[in-house]
Simulated scan of single mutants.
Amino acid sequence: MGGFFPMIDLKLRPNRRVIPAGTELWRVHRSIHAPDAFNPRLADIHFDGGRFDGTVLDRYHSLYLAETALTALAESVLRSRPFDLPAGERTIPYRAVWQRTLSCLRTRTDLTLVSLVSGTDLAAVCQDATLLEDEGNYARARRWSSEIRAQAPDAMGLVWESRRNRSEHALVLFHDRCERPGGGPLEVLTDRGIADLGSEEGRERADALLAPLRASVSKPEWPC
């Protein structure tokens, strides 16, 4: 913690959800990074950065995951992708999967998260769906993440309903709450996932996963 929070007088009553040890989780990440690596980059207080990234006011590293492979893919590549006319399919630019990997990980320990899934969960932290739906104000979401962290010191992260694959869940982990003797909270399952989403085989497997959401990856924009 950076020592700047809490900054509000509201009493939050965050609801917890425990992800049991042994649970499989998924993420899409740049292939040059380890599947279980936290992103050390801090978001700008007002502009660039992910919805629940740490900032200079609260210096935690983040790791975004999803409960299923499809949700991890959807969260990574389906943002602002319209349904094309007349087929009603969504085309994902090749650059969205180039040099990226879909990895499967398994929790080594129970993860205690603050739940933002339901209306009552959001009300428990004095928020509503705007916290998750507003694409133009990530700065507010980042600030509220820090408020939640300050009033839920046992929370190792947050979990919420995916905006791009409804009823499934996405989550973020905080590195400073996940440190444990003998390694991090996640074990990489090397025999699962898609090592190169930009390869022909990788795109075919990604398309098979994304088919229920009527989406597919375009061919490379340059010769391979």
Rank of each mutant, 00 (worst) to 15 (best):
M7N: 12
I8E: 15
D9S: 15
D9M: 07
L10D: 09
L12Q: 13
L12Y: 00
N15S: 15
I19C: 03
T23L: 04
E24N: 10
L25T: 10
S31I: 15
I32D: 11
P35C: 07
D36R: 11
F38S: 04
N39W: 06
L42E: 02
D44A: 14
I45H: 13
F47M: 06
D48G: 10
F52Q: 00
D53L: 09
D58K: 00
Y60K: 02
Y60W: 03
S62R: 01
L63W: 06
L63H: 12
L65M: 10
T68E: 09
A69V: 00
L70V: 07
A72L: 08
E75C: 09
R81Y: 04
L85A: 12
L85S: 06
A87K: 13
A87E: 15
I92A: 12
R95V: 04
A96W: 11
V97F: 00
V97N: 11
Q99S: 14
T101H: 03
S103A: 15
C104Y: 05
L105P: 07
T107K: 01
L113N: 05
V114N: 00
G119K: 00
G119A: 01
L122R: 10
C126I: 08
C126Y: 10
Q127R: 12
T130C: 10
L131Y: 08
L131S: 04
E133W: 11
E133Q: 13
D134G: 00
G136C: 10
N137W: 15
Y138E: 01
Y138G: 07
Y138W: 08
R140K: 04
R142V: 03
R142S: 05
S145C: 09
R149L: 07
Q151W: 01
M156Q: 15
M156F: 01
L158F: 08
W160C: 00
E161Q: 11
N165A: 05
H169T: 02
V172R: 00
L173D: 02
L173N: 05
H175M: 02
H175R: 08
C178L: 12
C178Q: 11
P181W: 15
G182I: 09
L186C: 02
E187I: 09
D191W: 10
I194G: 13
D196E: 11
G198F: 11
S199P: 09
S199L: 10
E201S: 06
G202S: 07
G202I: 03
S216M: 09
S218C: 13
